Amino acid sequence: MKTPEILFLCTGNSCRSILAEVTMNGLADSRLHATSAGSHPAGYVHPRSIQLLQQEGFATEGLSSKSWDELNTTPDIVITVCASAAGEACPAYLGPAIRAHWRVEDPAKATGSEAEIDAAFQTAYRILRHRIDALLKLPVAEWLEKDPAQLRQELNRIGTMEL
């Protein structure tokens, strides 16, 4: 079985999708491979995202904010992480991939004190980490091949999980 490719997609590709990509790749032990992209990339990875990932023990070298037009592989699964209630234009990825939506508030839009902004990044990371941990318990490669409807259902269920 080939390694399933997961694309985490958001608008700016500077925070949430980057957090998800790095976390997935750091925890998946090569069972899954994640990339991230945006429909309107910010052009940089948010420094607080890099700092948080480093604090969690993940490598951050070579990270970049990129457009979905720059992808070299066709994903098997696309997970959008936009918080549509916040008025974001969440991109719709066209293609044969299984799609799911994991709504997460954008910490880059957080305001307030430094502690409040840091808390927004921590919250986004913790939600994504919780959901990624749940995803890693699934037989993704097997279901992708034999039961994509079951996989889609589980991805959508995971997307509703709170902390």
Score class of each variant (00 low, 15 high):
Ser84Ile: 00
Ile158Thr: 05
Val78Ala: 05
Thr160Asn: 11
Leu144Asp: 05
Leu27Met: 09
Glu145Ile: 13
Arg99Val: 06
Pro75Met: 07
Gly112Ser: 06
Gln153Asp: 14
Ala83Val: 07
Ala20Tyr: 06
Pro91Phe: 08
Val45Gly: 01
Trp143Ala: 09
Gly43Arg: 07
Asp133Pro: 09
Met1Gly: 03
Leu9Glu: 00
His46Ala: 06
Lys109Ile: 04
Pro148Ile: 14
Glu88Pro: 13
Asn156Met: 12
Asp69Gly: 04
Asp76Val: 10
Lys146Asn: 14
His130Thr: 15
Ser17Ile: 06
Ala92Gln: 13
Leu52Ser: 06
Ile77Cys: 15
Thr111Lys: 10
Ala89Arg: 09
Glu116Lys: 06
Thr11Leu: 03
Ile79Gln: 02
Gln153Met: 05
Ala28Asn: 01
Asn13His: 09
Arg103His: 10
Arg99Lys: 07
Thr60Ala: 04
Ala85Cys: 05
Ile117Trp: 02
Cys82Ile: 02
Ala34Ile: 02
Asp147Phe: 03
Ala86Gln: 14
Asp133Leu: 14
Leu151Cys: 03
Gly57Val: 00
Glu70Asp: 09
Leu71Pro: 11
Ile127His: 10
Arg131Cys: 12
Ile6Lys: 02
Ala89Lys: 06
Leu63Asp: 02
Arg103Glu: 15
Ala37Pro: 12
Asn72Phe: 00
Thr60Cys: 03
Asp69Val: 09
Ala37Ser: 10
Thr160Met: 12
Thr80Phe: 08
Thr160Ser: 13
Thr3Asp: 04
Leu71Gln: 08
Asn13Phe: 05
Arg157Leu: 11
Cys90Glu: 11
Tyr44His: 08
Glu116Val: 04
Ala86His: 11
Thr35Asn: 01
Leu63Gln: 04
Thr160Ile: 05
Tyr44Glu: 05
Leu135Thr: 03
Pro96Glu: 12
Asn156Gln: 15
Pro96Cys: 08
Ile98Gln: 00
Thr3Lys: 04
Leu163Asn: 14
Leu155Asn: 03
Glu56Gly: 01
Ala34Val: 01
Asp69Phe: 03
Ala141Lys: 04
Ala100Ile: 12
His46Ile: 10
His46Val: 08
Tyr93Ser: 07
Ile117Thr: 11
Ala149Arg: 15
Ala34Gly: 14
Tyr44Pro: 08
Lys2Thr: 07
Leu32Thr: 06
His101Gly: 12
Phe58Glu: 01
Arg31Leu: 09
Ser17Arg: 02
Met24Trp: 00
Gln51Leu: 14
Arg129Pro: 00
Arg16Leu: 10
Thr160Val: 07
Pro148Asp: 13
Ala120Thr: 11
Pro91Met: 05
Thr123Glu: 13
Gly112Pro: 13
Ser64Glu: 05
Glu154Tyr: 12
Arg103Ala: 09
Ala85Trp: 09
Ser113Gly: 14
Ala97Leu: 07
Ala149Asn: 15
Ala59Pro: 10
Gln51Val: 09
Ala120Leu: 11
Glu61Cys: 02
Ala110Leu: 06
Ile132Gln: 07
